[in-house]
Computed example of a mutant assay.
Amino acid sequence: MKTLVVIGLGNIATRHRKNLRYLMPKAKIYAVSASGRRVNSHVEYADEVLNSIEQIIPLNPDLVIIASPATFHAEHAIPLIEAKIPLLIEKPVCTSVEQATQLEHLSQQHQTPTAVGYCLRFMPTAQKLKALLIDNVIGEVFHCSCSVGQYLPHWRPTKDYRQTVSANAHLGGGALLELSHELDYLQWLFGDWQVSHAILRQSKQLNLQVEDIADVTLHNSSGVICQLHMDFLQQPAQRHCVIVGSLGRIEWDLIENSLTQYSIEGKKQHYWEPEWDRNLMYIEMLNAFINVASENSSETFATQNIASITAATNTVRLIETIKNSAQYVGEA
């Protein structure tokens, strides 16, 4: 019987436990509080609750998912990596390059399969977009424009948004870290980026001590320019990416789950399924991680499309470069 552990008791941890139960109904699933506090009540989709991180290693679990706040990821991951227990760490992998690099090196040293939960890679439109770019359907790519925005108080309606991870720097909050999916998929699609210009802003709408708006211009070695916008303010939410090439453009709407190509020959709808069950991308990510955990090779990471610890470290490094080079508006 499989033994599985999920660290964290928040919404994403509950989702992971539920999906693990669906994928492996006969497995024994343990839940652990991220803070190490004793939990006396029943935890949904868990067979048993552990009272400390230290109790995990003697169980020799088949895999562990770390769904604690990002500032705790290194603390929780290090002993598990050293014990060679396969890990899926929720994004971002850490809040500093120093910690992310430490986990990357330990993972390589101990040959521990370590992946990071950038689930947007598992949207069907994301998979199709990558294939279209590999096939050069829009020719040489010149430019991309990516934008993501959602009103923070609507993210978790049952909680005071000011008390959430997203709103607090000491928990890894701010638009760049919380919305880092965009930076991950841009590197997954196009490779490494350099920062040309960045402005980070603190609006008066939410009264946060972290950036709630980020505007960044990036460039890569192929000459592609990317303009990226992120915010915690938009109502209703929007998330899209437009890629312009010598033979046309592709528009990707992540909320509508649509992918449309435009060329001189007209419009081609490659995908459109707005009612698609978004939980499927989490299930596909778990399936990919299970494959990676069982085979533990760099080739498996590439074929499964799951974010490796190295890719996630590069994302944290890019965020740190943006923060260090940015012009700040407000107090962020």
Results as ranks from 00 to 15, higher is better:
residue 38 R to S: 10
residue 72 F to C: 10
residue 285 M to L: 15
residue 135 D to W: 12
residue 137 V to Y: 01
residue 30 Y to D: 08
residue 206 L to S: 02
residue 303 T to M: 10
residue 10 G to I: 07
residue 126 A to V: 11
residue 254 L to Y: 12
residue 156 R to L: 06
residue 42 H to V: 15
residue 243 I to K: 08
residue 294 S to Q: 13
residue 256 E to H: 10
residue 106 L to E: 10
residue 2 K to D: 14
residue 224 V to A: 06
residue 225 I to L: 08
residue 115 A to D: 06
residue 63 L to S: 08
residue 97 V to Y: 03
residue 78 I to M: 09
residue 294 S to K: 15
residue 306 I to Y: 01
residue 193 W to Y: 06
residue 212 D to H: 04
residue 282 Y to S: 08
residue 267 K to Q: 15
residue 32 V to Y: 02
residue 57 I to V: 13
residue 18 K to E: 10
residue 176 L to C: 08
residue 61 P to C: 06
residue 230 M to F: 10
residue 23 L to A: 02
residue 5 V to T: 04
residue 263 S to M: 07
residue 64 V to A: 09
residue 314 N to A: 15
residue 39 V to Y: 02
residue 173 G to R: 01
residue 233 L to E: 02
residue 152 L to P: 03
residue 100 A to I: 01
residue 282 Y to W: 07
residue 20 L to A: 11
residue 256 E to I: 05
residue 21 R to D: 04
residue 304 Q to C: 15
residue 208 L to V: 06
residue 10 G to V: 05
residue 323 K to F: 07
residue 8 G to W: 05
residue 77 A to H: 01
residue 91 K to V: 04
residue 320 E to R: 09
residue 285 M to C: 14
residue 6 V to P: 03
residue 226 C to V: 06
residue 236 P to F: 03
residue 166 S to L: 09
residue 46 A to G: 05
residue 308 S to T: 13
residue 159 K to T: 11
residue 65 I to C: 02
residue 201 R to K: 12
residue 158 T to F: 13
residue 60 N to M: 08
residue 179 L to M: 11
residue 175 A to S: 14
residue 33 S to I: 14
residue 131 A to G: 09
residue 134 I to V: 14
residue 123 M to H: 12
residue 158 T to Q: 12
residue 76 H to Y: 11
residue 266 G to T: 07
residue 258 S to D: 03
residue 100 A to H: 03
residue 33 S to W: 05
residue 307 A to R: 00
residue 47 D to Q: 09
residue 171 L to P: 00
residue 75 E to R: 11
residue 292 V to W: 08
residue 174 G to R: 01
residue 89 I to D: 03
residue 26 K to G: 07
residue 123 M to N: 03
residue 32 V to Q: 00
residue 55 Q to K: 15
residue 164 T to D: 12
residue 117 G to Q: 00
residue 163 Q to F: 04
residue 103 L to T: 07
residue 148 V to T: 13
residue 230 M to P: 02
residue 272 W to C: 15
residue 8 G to K: 05
residue 288 A to L: 11
residue 131 A to W: 00
residue 40 N to A: 13
residue 215 D to G: 03
residue 22 Y to Q: 08
residue 283 I to W: 04
residue 302 A to Q: 07
residue 61 P to S: 11
residue 60 N to V: 09
residue 245 G to W: 07
residue 187 Q to H: 03
residue 322 I to W: 01
residue 42 H to P: 13
residue 74 A to W: 05
residue 248 G to R: 01
residue 176 L to V: 05
residue 329 V to H: 10
residue 136 N to R: 08
residue 166 S to V: 11
residue 243 I to N: 01
residue 288 A to I: 00
residue 254 L to M: 15
residue 178 E to V: 08
residue 269 Q to L: 14
residue 87 L to M: 12
residue 307 A to G: 07
residue 34 A to P: 04
residue 21 R to Q: 08
residue 191 G to H: 04
residue 149 G to F: 00
residue 129 L to Q: 08
residue 307 A to S: 15
residue 272 W to V: 09
residue 212 D to Q: 02
residue 302 A to M: 12
residue 294 S to L: 13
residue 223 G to N: 06
residue 255 I to F: 10
residue 149 G to Q: 02
residue 47 D to C: 09
residue 279 N to D: 10
residue 199 I to T: 14
residue 84 K to M: 09
residue 150 Q to N: 15
residue 193 W to D: 09
residue 110 H to T: 01
residue 279 N to A: 12
residue 47 D to K: 11
residue 42 H to N: 14
residue 248 G to N: 12
residue 36 G to T: 12
residue 313 T to K: 08
residue 153 P to L: 07
residue 15 R to N: 11
residue 273 E to C: 06
residue 38 R to Y: 13
residue 200 L to A: 15
residue 157 P to K: 03
